[in-house]
Amino acid sequence: MSPALSAFWQEYRENWIAVVALAVVAIIVAAALFAPWIAPQDPYDLANLELANARRPPGFVGSDGYVHWLGTDAQGRDLFSAILYGLRISLQMGIAAGAVALTIGTLLGVLAAHAGGKVEAGIMRLVDLQLSFPAILLALVLVAVLGQGRVPLIIALVTAQYAYFARTAYGAATAERQKDYVEAARATPLPGRRVVFRHILPNCLPPLIVVGTVQVANAIALEATLSFLGLGLPPTEPSLGMLIANGFQYMMSGRTWISVYPGIALIVLIVAINVVGDQLRDQFNPRLRR
């Protein structure tokens, strides 16, 4: 481990809540990655679902011979298995959308700061216009137009989020552009793209990492919201939002576990990621430390 990374970790672990949150995120990611080997049932395989096992309470021993520790949903899916696969989908959508939005937003923000003039005005007015719309409204419209599926959903999430990265990158790049080392680099016969990618962009990464962490959590929450409304992934790929929606109609009949357990998993994941992002923000910006 490099000295800088070691010092960063030493400071990070001073906040035990952030350490617990990081451990929770690591456990959830590991559980999602190894879901096919951990889950007792494949919730995507509709041929193996038994309607006789539907809406059974936690601890029920199904006709398949194993214990449904968290119960089953209305289709007879083992909830523990469905939650593991749902976490997998949520992380895939959140990380993919966050990575694409980070790339697009960063390039636009740095380009606006470096080019200036009409290019800067055009890009930033577009970003400001997009930020004036609620993310959920924009995502709803795009998903309704593009249809269901992973690619349309990622497009909707990226469109709803790239402006946050663009605004952050623009602010950081504008501050870096005024510094002496950038002026010195511009005074040499270096191409503009090298000044941007070798000098300005690396110093813009710390705030972008913090925003990226928060936006991954926001993308997961937004995907769950769209799936809950029936506009996310198809029913054959049950995400956490869809699992919550499937059990919503049974809440008043006492079968609360169908919605409660996926909801708890979603809340734990989002809160843990946000706590990690909050700690990263404090470390990358010493002025925000308590």
Results as ranks from 00 to 15, higher is better:
Val214Gln: 14
Leu111Cys: 06
Thr103Arg: 06
Pro235Cys: 03
Tyr66Gly: 04
Ala121Gln: 06
His199Trp: 05
Pro206Ala: 02
Phe133Asn: 04
Leu108Val: 07
Glu14Met: 12
Arg287Gly: 06
Glu50Met: 08
Val29Gln: 06
Pro234Asn: 07
Ala221Tyr: 12
Phe34Glu: 06
Arg167Cys: 10
Gln279Ala: 11
Ala139Arg: 11
Leu140Asp: 08
Ile95Pro: 00
Gly230Cys: 02
Leu51Ile: 11
Asn15His: 09
Leu140Ser: 10
Asp278Ala: 13
Met252Gln: 09
Phe284Cys: 04
Ala221Asp: 08
Leu146Trp: 04
Ala31Tyr: 12
Leu140Thr: 05
Gly65Ile: 10
Leu205His: 09
Thr256Ala: 15
Ala32Ile: 05
Leu138Gly: 04
Val20His: 11
Leu111Asp: 01
Arg290Asn: 15
Leu205Phe: 13
Val141Trp: 05
Pro238Ala: 15
Leu153Asp: 07
Gly59Ile: 13
Ile209Asp: 02
Leu266Gln: 03
Val141Asp: 01
Glu223Arg: 06
Leu108Thr: 03
Glu11His: 13
Glu237Trp: 14
Asp73Thr: 06
Val276His: 00
Ser239Lys: 03
Tyr66Arg: 08
Pro207Trp: 03
Leu157Trp: 09
Ala139Lys: 08
Pro58Asp: 02
Val19Lys: 00
Phe60Ile: 01
Leu84Asn: 04
Met1Thr: 06
Phe8Ala: 15
